[in-house]
Design a protein around this nucleic acid. Structure first.
Lengths: 127, 127
DNA sequence: CAGCGCCTTTCACGGATTTTTCACGACTAA
DNA sequence: TTAGTCGTGAAAAATCCGTGAAAGGCGCTG
């Protein structure tokens, strides 16, 4: 609803703010608001969140996430992505206990999509 | 120097006074009142405060702050911004011990927003 | 000119925070 | 059981930040 005011000179697909559930992700500032309340995320946490939020609803493989956030190829056995997804989940759950955002699809990757945690009906998560 | 810097954004009207919590910042005078009591700030301190207060709630990077207050580009390793934020914090905390104004977002910058650290008798309604 | 006082800039150190890496255990599938 | 995938606490390494204090400027006073 809140249309953001401004430039049409940039690329049409470069929003400065992403919205997902009660999350507001301000790309230019590195700020995330949960129901208006600011979260304190580290740089990596923020980048992982943005990478996922940009592809809301899609499954993103770990390799893909790694390339997007860290750059280069992920070495076999590297768990960085998992660790940061875990940190992110923790902070998001702190801020919004009734929501789940990051869904695991074993063998495939992660999917980012705001979803109430009490109500699980859309699909069985075990692909 | 200029009594007050022209704003970089074209707001319909440029306010001469900023309010934030119990702070009143009189731009044209260079005067800051905390619960009516005047603070003694140096020029730089005042400018840093104004730069932040003008973007209340937003994260401002050190580079950004440097450009706004000092002008030009910040040289790598320059800590001026940090030092002045520290001085400012110290004076604000002197004047209003129960409030936090300047929040650090490691890796991103600072966010200015009045926030009670203890006592909540703020004007509750969003303003 | 010399001495002061205030402001700004720069430096340095230690603590805080982040990032990376490791390890263990839960879980799944054959 | 055996192998592969995940979640996550915690150690180790790397950065980032807060801040006291030194150093340099500038104006004022005697």
């Amino acid at each position: 609803m809140a249309a953001f005011p401004e430039s049409s000179q940039s690329a049409p697909e470069t929003p400065e703010i992403l919205y997902a559930g009660e999350l507001e992700i301000r790309l230019d500032e590195g700020l995330v608001l949960a129901t208006g309340q600011p979260l304190v995320l580290s740089v990596r946490e923020f980048e992982v969140l943005v990478a996922m939020a940009r592809r809301l609803g899609a499954i993103i493989s770990r390799d893909d996430l790694y390339r997007t956030v860290w750059g280069g190829e992920q070495r076999p056995g590297d768990r960085s992505v998992d660790v940061y997804v875990s940190k992110l989940r923790s902070k998001l759950e702190d801020a919004l206990p009734d929501r789940r955002f990051i869904h695991t699809h074993p063998g495939f990757g992660y999917r980012f999509q705001p979803q109430p945690s009490r109500n699980v009906y859309t699909e069985a998560a075990s692909g």
